[in-house]
Write a protein that binds this DNA or RNA. Structure first.
Length: 643
RNA sequence: GCUGCAGUAGCUCAGCGGCAGAGCACUUCCUUGGUAAGGAAGAGGCCAUGGGUUCAAGCCCCAUCUGCAGCUCCA
């Protein structure tokens, strides 16, 4: 009873008797690169026995699957070590994740930083021996018996058995530590390089992610096949920290958040306000150019409007408590749509007025739980770059084109590339199937017509709307929530949004919600990290500083500054009695894009020595050239060379 | 909200029961210099807040507030 194994190159080999996957692969790959295998596409142990026809593929170092197997195995090694340090400790789960792995424990005391070092030390010890990972399959009763002191494991076993009462329970043992685990694992700890491992942090995590259940201690770590890969990862973490908008925000004096003012409420300092103002100015210009009209709506509104919109019912948890005004309940505005709808509803609308595009940089207030607040990225008061388009069904597709064009244009200016998603009907939804089909179909058609590459996020829509979501990729390749465009199937009904069509009859209006930047807070916070604080010239708080070499050039520096200011540039003269080197250092730390040195030589020649943040000393140029160079760079909104 | 950790000068941090500290920033003075730190002096504090323990608390204990990491959540 022989069988055939098919390899990725298409060759087939006949086997007379059952063999371990590693044996079947021997001679086909370098043993040192072999981490695991795929049997019929499923990642498996190398020791897994093959006894029937199948396809077999090696999983080699360098592949994502190999890294997962490695990390999962390292999490077991860590768990073994932690239990060695805390006999009687309970283990929960310990999977590989995108950036490493973690393991959740219930331990007699909280872990400390020192414990992490100790864990790492003991792991290195374990890895010095070469212990094999052994898989066994147990009958349910036996598995229960084996894990009788491990309540989390028992719960997992029960769950497995709920699906299949006769399931074999697989366990893995290495170095005397046995864990309930589906696998697969590396064949032996000798595959794991101690110098590729780092235990990173401790944090709380709910058992099974359920906030009503026990809080466990989660230990995060990461693992790579080489010290170089680990270093690259740690360097990246350091770079992320270096770019942290909270840190840069403080260093560059852009914004602050104060206990006395309240958590989640941002104060924009003058420098940060320049960035925001320039972006808002650009935003308004761009919208007006594209046929939007700007509006303003108040920060508080009678509760009645939110009753009607349904927000009060669905999202009251995120709305601030009502305030009593002349016996009426008012609420801080949590979203702009009711205001815009009210403007649309103000009188009967004719089809001739459509599409009506109402845009507002509207400030809203939402209650966010204290634990989720994060610098400018997650706050309780923020300004959305919001717009609502009221149009007819016939106009919808054209409007979506316009929105997508706007998204592209604005993302390009900031240097973000985007991934596009079409989020379709979720399980819970309102509205009719016909409406959903129309709305989703129109979005899909618009994307297809433009030839944009997009993925479908099946069921990812909101309960009242399908949407197009853009995820922005920043300079570090991280994803950020980007522009979004929703076709609302709810509010037009709730508010009975109609217009008089060409036949003189009422027709239901279609409503589109869309935002490009999201919120000024989150967007600018993200931009700080995207640019690492070195902003493109057009939004730089200070665009240029003129540094006189001695006080004899103060007047000349002033003249140069005036020439720049006349062109609307944000320029300062650094007139402090410090050396040039000192000023350059400080201005560089402040990431000023242009520093112009004005000494005796420059004054005689009517020039300035140009120094840019990204390229350093560029030599002298006439004042007029400097001015026009900066003016042109502002006008074109050029991106910094380095990002 | 939950678990853990933290809160000392504007910033970054040291001090861990016994006189409140450093560097940078700030002010003044000297220095007028050529592409990432010239020198000196000075000023700056209810050690997050409220209780408690102690002869004595920045330090130990409790509570609250705020921040950080993660979890959960995010129309």
């Amino acid at each position: 009873m022989s069988f055939f194994v098919t390899f990725p190159d298409g060759t087939r080999a006949e086997f007379e008797r059952a063999a371990a996957a590693s044996e079947a692969l021997s001679g086909r790959v370098r043993p040192a690169d072999l981490v695991a295998c795929k049997i019929d596409g499923r990642v498996s142990d190398l020791a897994r026995r093959i006894d029937s026809d199948c396809s077999l593929e090696p999983v080699l170092k360098g592949s994502a699957e190999a890294l997962d197997v490695l990390r999962h195995s390292v999490s077991h090694v860590m768990a073994g070590v932690v239990l060695g340090m805390f006999p009687g400790g309970k283990t929960a789960i310990g999977p590989a994740i995108q950036t490493g792995f973690y393991y959740d424990f219930d331990l007699p005391r909280p872990l400390t930083e020192d414990d992490l070092a100790e864990i790492e030390r003991r792991m290195a010890e374990v890895l010095r021996t070469s212990a094999s990972f052994r898989r066994e399959e147990l009958a349910p009763a036996k598995a229960r018996e084996m894990f009788r002191d491990q309540p989390f494991k028992i719960e997992l076993i029960d769950d497995i058995l709920k699906d299949d009462p006769k399931a074999a329970i697989s366990i893995y043992t290495h170095d005397g530590f046995t864990d309930l685990c589906a696998g697969p694992h590396v064949a032996s700890t000798s595959v794991i390089p101690a110098e590729g491992i780092k235990i990173l942090s401790i944090a709380g995590a709910y058992w099974r992610g359920d906030e009503r259940r026990q809080m466990l201690q989660r230990v995060y770590g990461t693992a790579f096949f080489s010290a170089d890969d680990l270093k690259a990862h740690l360097d990246r973490l350091a770079e992320i920290e270096r770019r942290d908008h909270r840190k840069l925000g403080k260093e560059l004096d852009l914004f602050s958040i104060h206990q006395d003012l309240g958590p989640g409420l941002v104060l924009w300092h003058p420098a940060g306000a320049v960035i925001r103002r320039e972006i808002e100015r650009f935003w308004v210009d761009e919208h007006v150019r594209r046929g939007y009209e700007t509006v303003y709506s108040p920060h508080i509104a009678s509760e009645r409007i939110y009753e009607r919109s349904g927000h009060l019912e669905a999202y009251s948890d995120m709305m601030y408590a009502p305030m009593d005004i002349d016996g009426q309940k008012y609420r801080a505005k949590p979203m702009n749509c009711p205001g815009h709808i009210t403007i649309f509803q103000n009188r009967r609308r004719s089809y001739r007025e459509l599409p009506m595009r109402l845009a507002e940089l509207g400030t809203v207030y939402r209650y966010e739980r204290s634990g989720v607040l994060h610098g400018m990225l997650r706050v309780r008061g923020f300004t959305q770059d919001d717009a609502h388009i009221f149009c007819s069904r016939a106009q919808l597709r054209q409007e979506i084109y316009g929105v997508l064009d706007l998204f592209d244009a604005m993302m390009k200016v900031f240097g973000y590339s985007c991934k596009v998603y079409l989020a379709t009907r979720p399980e819970k939804y309102i509205g009719t199937d016909e409406e959903w089909d129309f709305a989703t179909g129109t979005l899909r058609k618009a994307l297809e017509d433009r030839g944009s590459a997009f993925e479908v996020d099946e069921g990812g829509g909101v309960f009242y709307a399908p949407k197009i979501d853009l995820k922005m990729l920043d300079a570090l390749g991280r994803e950020w929530q980007g522009p979004t465009c929703q076709v609302d199937l709810n509010l037009p009904v709730r508010f009975d949004l109609n217009f008089v069509n060409a036949e003189g009859r009422d027709e239901r209006a279609v409503m589109v919600h869309r935002t490009v930047l999201g919120s000024m807070e989150r967007f600018v916070g993200g931009l700080i990290e995207h640019y690492a604080g070195a902003f493109p010239l057009w939004i730089s708080p200070v665009q240029a500083v003129i540094v006189p070499v001695t006080k004899r050039q103060l007047a000349y520096a002033g003249e140069a500054a005036s020439a720049m200011k006349a062109k609307g540039l944000r320029v300062k003269v650094d007139d402090r009695s410090e050396k040039v080197g000192f000023k350059i250092r400080e201005l560089t730390i402040q990431k000023v894009p242009y520093v112009f040195v004005a000494g005796e030589r420059e004054e005689k020649a009517g020039t300035l020595s140009v120094r840019t943040y990204h390229r350093g000393d560029e030599g002298a140029a006439p004042i007029g050239d400097c001015v026009s160079r900066l003016a042109a760079e502002v006008e074109s909104k050029s991106l910094p060379q380095s990002s």
